[in-house]
Write a protein that binds this DNA or RNA. Structure first.
Length: 878
RNA sequence: GGGCGCAUAGCUCAGUUGGUUCAGAGCACCUCGUUUACACCGAGGGGGUCGGGGGUUCGAAUCCCUCUGCGCCCACCA
């Protein structure tokens, strides 16, 4: 039974997805309508769908489907990212399994393997997005390594180089010894590590004394080229100008002075290793020190490592400290906690390393990007608090290292023709490069085979920062009609973890290449955590299988559950399967409502009952007010609140009230007028719910009404905000309280709902009688009378200062009634007292706004009236 | 070390400029109910001194100070 239901819901979802595709509803072409554009944050081409994707893409689909219903030309561009480091690492690992070493392959051979891998696993995730119901324009699917996309990237590089914004620099970069590539600062994460602080003795050349230096990295002493002291440190004043001897290698190095050294820390002496530390490099440059690189690219020691040559740095730490101890050079070690940079991808400890890299100047790019977000608000970030993070990063930005020592990516279009530092040209093609090279050398004798292209590839983000532009071919054909129409895009939905990698850089690119922002709004999703608040990870095994969830609960239920969970932009969400159950229950509720309505027999002859007429009129206003609320939530990107508004509207107002109010008696037909109005109301519900639960709503849409003329729900017309009849809403409020009062009495007195009751009202507040027919129906009231006198021998309840009586046969428990009345009276009097206290306070009356005082006076009057009523009733009983 | 943010019912969170509707929602929980769409249901109900302390004000969940406990981002102290 259960599996049957699951299969049928899968079948239905597949059926409608096919239907939408066959009718090309997801596809967008430039036309006269207002465009609404989203570009997908391209997932890794070889990735598989995880919870984060589900959240992120559900949000995008909700936005795009709503825009489509609003009659906008909705365009959601999908695609994948080549993810250079991650993908190359996977390919290298796979080759290794097959016994193939990357270094034994040529670039071309390796790329062949990488493409094979991509074709085998690539795009799986896009198929998974279809299961989720994502209405992307699949005809526009892009991959960041597609020929046109790569061409745009290369063109951009050349353009920036020619503008003088890209330069080549010998810099200290973050080196990942495992991937054997550099990483940008953003790709390095710092982790706390229990390490040791080693106190090492260096001999002074001129005297017999020793000097102690504290370091966390004893293995790098072989690369030491100076000892640094603070010039103001009197303890070491006598060492100025002297020289020290590095243990083991016995190199003689100068003792230099710089106030960079913290007198308080360690021993107040610092060993300087310019090749392996950013600060030491700076010191080295300042004091003209020799640079000795002791590492190979995999962080084993090279020939400068002497007898440690070929050994890994971590092995050497242990061995060298032992040797130092033997030599009597190790004074002591202390436990020390420090932060070590690690590669985000490979988790390898980063080694600072000097090398030739390509950099993009950031200084001018950040200016318009700062202005757009913080000054003009041209681009809005949700949640707003993230602007602080954005500002801080942009104001402290360093030049972007765009080169990676990888093959999987766009190869840097720099061509070398000699060994000199400046012997290169940058051009889009080799032919063009040759021309430039010959111009540059003024020689003309260079041949094409004399040019050697830079081995490095570009950082992945150097292609994805162009994404909103390049997917519309706006780099190669900057004036084409698509880019002019779809760009700037409307909303970007992404995670806060890539605000620097991607979001900020897209903003740079937007202003640099289009002189326009790339998007209007950025919605930052939270991180999906488990219900204990832990990040989902493979190691913990706490990440559910996304596709399994879709199978178990249906895509609609998963989408609704995810959206109910996500409280607001930027908030993490604690994943909990009970929310998916809630989504499924909601789906079931709607199906059952449909089952009820579709089972009604419609009569063309019977009149519409008054109760149905007024109920429908009420629902019309109720819908409008809920709709207005929803729209307001949408405008603030509070999608979860928007869904909750619809949830309550459908479950409580539509199902529990409206359908019950118009429901015909057992085996009775329903009148045509009411039936048609209910169908209309149902359809409106489906429209507003469709962005969240597309399959279910489309299914019912086609069943509920003849669709030979009207099209699919996905392209139907969204409701518009209309005026709300607030009088009818407040009238209903009172009526529902009356009904609730009757139900409470039935419950207290064990009166079955099948048994009718009589109701008499003393209408002190002159309440509207419009809903009397509804009260009768919903309360199973056989007669409703307005009376001026209290009824004896009746059960009573009050709504505001109105009194309601249900006469009872037999005796009423006077004691109980008195008790109930006394309690209500006590509460009312207490309430009155607090109001009167407020009003007696001159400072309140004088200082508070008139409106507030008036409200308090109204409360006082209401309370007095209620007390009057209660007292009257009590007297009648006593 | 610097910056930002959070703390409201058992859980996840709303609460816009201090004052109708300010103590709320959903879920969970409790009671009752085999009413002819639905027990994936219906009707009721309990539950919070709004993290602690102090202050401003006629009035504070809301503004200020302080303490405590979390979270995130940034940072080269060997």
């Amino acid at each position: 039974m259960a599996s049957e239901a699951i299969n049928s819901s899968q079948n239905i979802e597949d059926k409608w997805y096919r239907y939408w595709m066959e009718n090309n509803y997801f596809h967008s072409e430039v036309d006269e309508r207002e465009p609404y554009t989203i570009v997908i944050p391209p997932p890794n081409v070889t990735g598989i769908l995880h919870m984060g994707h589900m959240l992120n893409n559900t949000i995008q689909d909700v936005l795009i489907r709503r825009a489509r219903l609003q009659g906008k030309n909705a365009c959601w561009v999908p695609g994948t990212d080549h993810a250079s480091i991650a993908t190359e690492a996977k390919v290298v690992a796979k080759l290794k399994e097959q016994g193939i070493n990357k270094n034994d392959l040529t670039r071309e051979e390796f790329l062949k393997h990488a493409w094979d891998w991509t074709h085998e696993y690539g795009g799986v995730i896009l198929e998974q997005l279809k299961k989720l119901g994502c209405s992307c324009d699949w005809e526009r699917t892009k991959f960041t390594l597609d020929a046109e996309m790569s061409e745009s990237v290369i063109k951009t590089f050349v353009n920036l180089y020619n503008k003088g914004l890209i330069y080549r620099g010998y810099r200290m970069v973050n080196w990942d010894p495992e991937a054997k590539t550099t990483l940008s600062d953003e790709e390095v994460e710092y982790v706390e590590q229990n390490g040791k602080l080693y106190y090492i003795n260096y001999k002074i050349e001129e005297t017999n004394e020793t000097l102690t230096v504290a370091t966390t990295r004893p293995e790098t002493i072989l690369g030491d080229t100076a000892i640094c002291i603070n010039p103001n440190d009197e303890r070491f004043a006598h060492l100025k100008g002297k020289k020290a001897i590095v243990p083991i290698c016995n190199r003689v190095i100068p003792i230099i002075e710089d106030d960079y050294v913290d007198i308080e820390f360690g021993t107040g002496c610092l060993k300087v290793t310019p090749a392996h530390d950013m600060n030491d490099k700076a010191l080295g440059d300042k004091h003209n020190l020799e640079v000795i690189d002791i590492f190979n690219e995999d962080a084993t020691l090279n020939s400068f490592g002497m007898h440690y040559q070929g050994k890994d740095r971590f092995v050497v730490i242990e061995e060298i400290s032992a040797e130092l101890e033997t030599l009597g050079c190790l004074q002591k070690t202390e436990n020390y906690i420090n932060k070590v940079g690690a590669s985000e991808r490979t988790k390898a400890v980063i080694e600072p390393r000097l090398s030739d890299q390509w950099f993009l100047k950031m200084e001018d790019m950040v200016k318009p990007a700062l202005k757009a977000v913080l000054e003009t608000q041209d681009i809005k970030l949700y949640p707003k608090k993230i602007e602080n993070t954005y500002r801080h990063w942009l104001e402290n930005i360093r030049d972007w290292n765009v080169s990676r020592q990888l093959w999987w990516g766009q190869q840097i279009p720099a061509y070398f023709y000699g060994d000199g530092k400046e012997d290169f040209v940058v051009a889009e093609t080799k032919v063009e490069a040759l021309k430039l090279a010959n111009e540059k050398t003024k020689d003309g004798g260079l041949k094409i085979e004399d040019l050697k292209q830079d081995n490095d590839a570009l950082d992945t983000w150097f292609s994805s920062w162009l994404w909103p532009i390049s997917v519309f071919d706006g780099i190669r054909n900057p004036d084409n009609k698509e880019i002019n129409y779809y760009y700037p895009t409307n909303d970007l939905v992404t995670g806060p973890d890539i605000i620097f990698f991607w979001v900020a850089r897209m903003i740079f690119a937007g202003y640099e290449f289009r002189d326009k922002k790339p998007f209007n709004n950025v919605y930052f999703t939270g991180i999906v955590r488990d219900n204990e608040g832990r990040k989902m990870s493979k190691q913990l095994g706490n990440s559910p299988d996304a596709l399994k969830l879709i199978e178990d609960y249906s895509a609609d239920a998963v989408r609704a559950g995810m959206m109910l969970l996500s409280s607001g932009a930027g908030n993490d969400l604690l994943f909990d399967e009970t929310k998916l159950q809630q989504g499924k229950a909601f789906k079931n509720k709607i199906l059952n409502a449909y089952k009820l309505v579709s089972g009604w027999e419609v009569s063309e002859t019977i009149e519409q009952p008054e109760s149905s007429r007024i109920a429908l009129e009420w629902y019309d206003s109720k819908f409008q007010s809920a709709f207005a609320e929803m729209e307001d939530h949408f405008s603030k990107y509070r999608l979860s609140d928007s869904l909750m508004t619809i949830y309550k509207l459908i479950w409580d107002d539509f199902c529990s009230w409206l359908l019950e109010m118009v429901k015909p008696g057992y085996q009775q037909p329903i009148d045509r007028k009411t039936f048609d109005a209910i169908i209309k109301a149902f359809e409106n519900n489906l429209k507003v719910l469709h962005p969240f639960m597309p399959f279910l709503t489309e299914e019912i849409w086609h069943q509920i009404s003849d669709r030979t003329k009207e099209e699919a729900l996905i392209v139907s017309e969204y409701p518009s905000v209309k005026e709300i009849n607030s009088e009818i809403l407040s009238g209903f409020e009172i009526a529902s309280e009356v009904i609730s009062g009757i139900r409470t009495i039935r419950k207290e007195k064990n009166i079955s709902f099948k048994e009718t009751v009589k109701l008499s009202v003393v209408n002190n507040i002159d309440a509207s009688t419009s809903f009397d027919s509804v009260i009768k129906k919903m309360g199973n009231v056989e007669s409703l009378e307005y009376v001026s006198e209290k009824i004896d021998g009746a059960l009573t309840f009050r709504v505001k200062s109105n009194e309601y009586f249900i006469p009872m046969e037999g005796t009423i428990n006077i004691e109980e009634e008195i008790e109930k009345l006394t309690e209500e009276l006590k509460y009312a009097e207490g309430f009155l007292k607090s109001i009167q206290g407020k009003l007696a306070n001159e400072r309140f009356v004088n200082n508070a706004p008139e409106k507030v005082v008036a409200i308090e006076r109204q409360k006082e009057a209401d309370a007095l009236a209620k007390i009057e009523t209660l007292k009257g009733s009590l007297e009648g009983l006593l």
